[in-house]
Design a protein around this nucleic acid. Structure first.
Length: 596
RNA sequence: GGUCCCGUAGCUCAGCUGGAUAGAGCAACAGCCUUCUAAGCUGUGGGCCAUUGGUUCGAAUCCAAUCGGGAUCACCA
C-alpha cells in the first residue's frame, strides 16, 4: 500500500477539523523521519501554526493526539519544535513486508504494460578509432536508462547510429593506404578497431609534421592546415567515396568491417546491445527534402549565396545553417531527416532519447526547436540525455593525441584487479577455471560500471587511471558481496524457502524495520530514476540497501536464531533484499554473483 | 562578448520539487573474525555547502550579482 497516501489522507481531515482549513491529502507533505529521532514519518507543522494560532509544539501535539486516537496503525508520536514524528505499528510494517515479499519482481512493472514505446539512441561511435572511457560512459548510461525505462513497463527500442563516413573516416583510410603496408588484424594480431585507430593517430602525426614544414616555409597556419598534402589527399578520397569509386568503397568496407569486429568484442564485454543499427552512410543524405519543406513553409530562408538558414534569434538562439551553399547537408540536416524517418518507421514511439555528451547541448536545443517549428508535435517528446565529460587528472582526453583511456585496456585491467583481489582472498579455490573467469569478469566489470553509473550523468566526472578503481566501500563489489553473503545463507538453509509463511507475532528488530522501510522505497526509486533519466539514483539506493544489510548481518543472526518464526521471517527478509539488489544492479547492467 | 552547465570534508561523490545537529566512501587513526563470507562492522578526527546580498518562520537547496572552472556560439561532426 502507499504509506504516504494513507498518512496524508489521515492527516488532512484532522488538520481541517482542528484548525478550520480546507486541505486535501495532496497538500500534506511528509518526509521520512531522520535517523536521530524516534518515528517513521514526519509532518512539518510550521505551515499550520498560523491557522492553529498556537506554538509549533502545541500544533504538533494536537495533530498527533487526534491521529493516534483515530488510527490504530499510528501508535505514537513525538514533537520536536515544528516537527511531528509519527510512528507506525510493528504489525503495520510486518504486513507491509508480507506484501513486498509476496511480489515476485517487487517494484518492476510487467514488460510493455505502460503502452509506451520509446526509442533510445546511444553509443554512436565513429569507425576511425577504438572506444575509450568517454564511450564507456555513454554506453553504460544508455543501456542503463533503457533498462530502467523497461522497469516502468515501457517498450524500449535501443538504437545505435554509427558514424561510418566522412572526412575523419577517410583520415585513417588514407594513412593506412600510405603507410599501412597492407597490414591487417590477422597480420598484426591487433584488434580491428585498434588497428584502424593506429592509422588515425598516424594521420595526425603526419598532418602536423606537414603543417610545420609548410609554416617553416612561410605559409600561414590557416593555409598550411588547408594545404597539407595529406589533407588534400583525404579530401580527394572523400570525394571519391561520395562518387562511389569502387576502390575507395572497397577500402572503406574492409576497414569498417575490421572496426565492427573489434566493436562487437567491446560491446559484448560491456554487456550492451542494440535492437537496430543505423549507419550514417545510409542516413547522411536524409533531410534535404525537409529543407525544401521548411522553405515552402517559410520557416527557412535562402541566403544570397544559396545556403539555407533558420533564424532562431527570437528563441534566444542564433541563426543556423541547415543546408550549405553548394547544396550539401550539414550535421543537423541529417539529424532532422533521421528523426523524421524514425517516427515514420516506428509510428508508435512516443519518445526519442538521444544519449550524447553535453558538448552538444546547443545542437540538440536547436534540433528540437526546428522540429517543433516544422510542425512535428513529437518534438516535445525528444530528449537529449546529456552527460558530462570524463576527465583525467591532466584534463580532457584527446583521441588524436593519444591521451585516452582505452575501453578494452580499462576493462581488462579491472578484471585483472578483480582476479588478484579475489585470488588473494582464497575464497574461490574450489571454483573451476571457467567459474573463476566468469566471477572475475562479473566483479571487475561490476566495479567499473558502478564507478561510472553512481555519479549523476549530468556532472562531469574525474577518472584517475593511476589509481585503480576501488573494490571496497561505495563500490560495485561491495554490493555484490552483500548479495553473495545472502545467497550463502539461503544455500545453508535446510528447509523450503518457497513455503515459508510469516508469523504475525514477530517483534521487529530495529535493523529489520529499517530494511523493510528501505525495501518499500524501491518502486519509487525506480520511477524517480526513470523520470530523471538518472541511474545514479538506483545505484546510490542499492548501496544504501547493501550497507544496511551488512549492519543487519552484523547484529542479527539468521540461521542461528533460536526462535523458528523469527528465523523464517529473516530468511524471507534477506531473500527479498537479495532480489532487490539483483534487480537494482541489473538496472545498471551489473551482474551479482551467487558466491564470491 | 552572448548563452548554458558546474563550485559541498584532503580526494571521489550523495543531499538540491526549501525544513531538525549537511551525509557516504577513500585516505588517517583506534577497536571487532573458536560465532551464517572481515570485499564486512563499530568508533575518532575532518565542513564559513565558492563569495555577497535578497525572498522566507526556515536556504547547501529558490532568486540576483561577483569570483573561479568548463562547454558552446562552424557552410566540422
Amino acid at each position: 500500500m502507499n504509506i504516504e497516501h494513507f498518512l496524508s489522507s489521515g492527516i488532512s481531515p484532522v488538520i481541517n477539523e482542528l484548525f478550520g482549513l480546507t486541505t486535501t491529502p495532496n497538500d500534506i507533505i511528509l518526509q521520512k523521519t531522520k535517523k536521530e529521532f524516534e518515528g517513521d514519518y514526519t509532518l512539518v507543522t510550521f505551515p499550520y501554526i498560523k491557522a492553529a494560532q498556537t506554538t509549533p509544539e502545541k500544533t504538533g501535539e494536537l495533530i498527533g493526539e487526534q491521529l493516534t486516537k483515530k488510527h490504530p496503525s499510528i501508535t505514537q508520536f513525538n514533537v520536536v519544535k515544528g516537527f511531528l514524528n509519527l510512528s507506525l505499528s510493528n504489525d503495520f510494517w510486518l504486513s507491509e513486508f508480507k506484501a513486498i515479499s509476496s511480489e515476485t519482481n517487487f517494484g518492476i512493472k510487467p514488460a510493455n504494460s505502460s503502452g509506451r514505446q520509446i526509442m533510445l539512441e546511444y553509443s554512436s561511435p565513429n569507425t576511425n578509432k577504438p572506444l575509450h572511457l568517454g564511450h564507456v560512459r555513454n554506453n553504460l548510461l544508455g543501456y542503463s536508462v533503457a533498462t530502467i525505462m523497461k522497469t516502468q513497463g515501457h517498450e524500449v527500442i535501443k538504437v545505435n547510429l554509427v558514424n561510418d563516413r566522412g572526412i575523419h573516416i577517410c583520415k585513417s583510410m588514407i594513412a593506412w593506404k600510405l603507410f599501412g603496408h597492407r597490414e591487417t588484424p590477422q597480420s598484426s594480431g591487433l584488434k580491428g578497431d585498434h588497428l584502424v585507430g593506429k592509422y588515425y593517430v598516424e594521420f595526425d602525426k603526419v598532418y602536423k609534421k606537414e603543417i610545420q614544414t609548410l609554416m617553416d616555409g612561410g605559409v600561414s597556419k590557416e593555409d598550411a592546415e588547408k594545404k597539407a598534402p595529406i589533407m588534400l589527399q583525404t579530401q580527394e578520397m572523400l570525394l571519391k567515396w561520395e562518387a562511389n569509386d569502387p576502390d575507395t568503397i572497397a577500402l572503406w568496407k574492409m576497414m569498417n568491417d575490421w572496426v565492427y569486429q573489434g566493436f562487437a568484442v567491446s560491446y559484448k564485454k560491456l554487456g550492451v546491445d542494440f535492437d537496430k543499427m543505423y549507419y550514417e552512410s545510409n542516413t547522411y543524405l536524409l533531410g534535404k527534402e525537409v529543407v525544401q519543406d521548411g522553405l515552402e513553409k517559410n520557416i527557412f530562408y535562402k541566403k544570397e549565396n544559396g545556403s539555407v538558414c533558420i533564424d532562431l534569434t527570437q528563441e534566444g538562439l542564433d541563426e543556423k545553417v541547415v543546408l550549405r551553399s553548394d547544396g550539401t547537408s550539414v550535421y543537423i540536416t541529417q539529424d532532422l531527416g533521421t528523426a523524421i524517418e524514425r517516427f515514420k518507421e516506428f509510428p508508435k514511439i512516443s519518445q526519442m532519447i538521444y544519449t550524447v555528451g553535453n558538448e552538444q547541448d546547443y545542437h540538440f536545443k536547436v534540433l528540437f526547436k526546428i522540429l517543433g517549428k516544422l510542425g512535428y508535435d513529437w518534438a516535445n517528446e525528444c530528449y537529449h540525455l546529456s552527460y558530462g565529460m570524463v576527465e583525467l587528472p591532466e584534463g580532457k582526453m584527446k583521441s588524436r593525441e593519444g591521451t585516452v583511456v582505452d575501453a578494452d585496456d580499462l576493462m581488462d585491467g579491472m578484471v585483472e584487479t578483480a582476479k588478484e583481489t579475489t585470488e588473494a582472498s582464497g575464497k574461490v579455490s574450489e571454483f573451476s577455471n571457467e567459474e573463476k573467469d566468469q566471477l572475475f569478469n562479473t566483479i571487475g566489470m561490476g566495479a567499473l560500471k558502478y564507478f561510472i553509473l553512481k555519479v549523476d550523468p549530468k556532472k562531469k566526472m574525474l577518472f584517475d587511471p593511476k589509481e585503480s578503481i576501488d573494490l571496497h566501500g561505495n563500490t560495485g563489489p561491495f554490493i555484490q558481496y552483500a548479495h553473495a553473503r545472502i545467497k550463502s545463507i539461503l544455500r545453508d538453509y535446510d528447509e523450503n524457502i518457497e513455503t515459508i509463511s510469516i508469523s504475525d507475532s514477530i517483534t521487529l528488530h530495529e535493523k529489520e524495520k529499517e530494511l523493510i522501510k528501505l525495501q518499500y522505497d524501491f518502486p519509487k526509486i525506480l520511477s524517480e530514476s526513470a523520470t530523471t533519466y538518472n541511474p545514479a539514483v538506483v545505484a546510490n539506493y542499492i548501496y544504501e540497501l547493501a550497507r544496511l544489510f551488512n549492519q543487519f548481518y552484523n547484529e542479527c543472526s539468521v540461521l542461528k536464531e533460536g526462535n523458528p518464526e523469527v528465523r523464517k521471517f529473516r530468511i524471507k527478509l534477506i531473500e527479498t533484499t537479495a532480489n532487490i539488489i539483483k534487480n537494482g544492479m541489473s538496472c545498471l547492467g551489473i551482474d551479482v554473483p551467487e558466491r564470491m
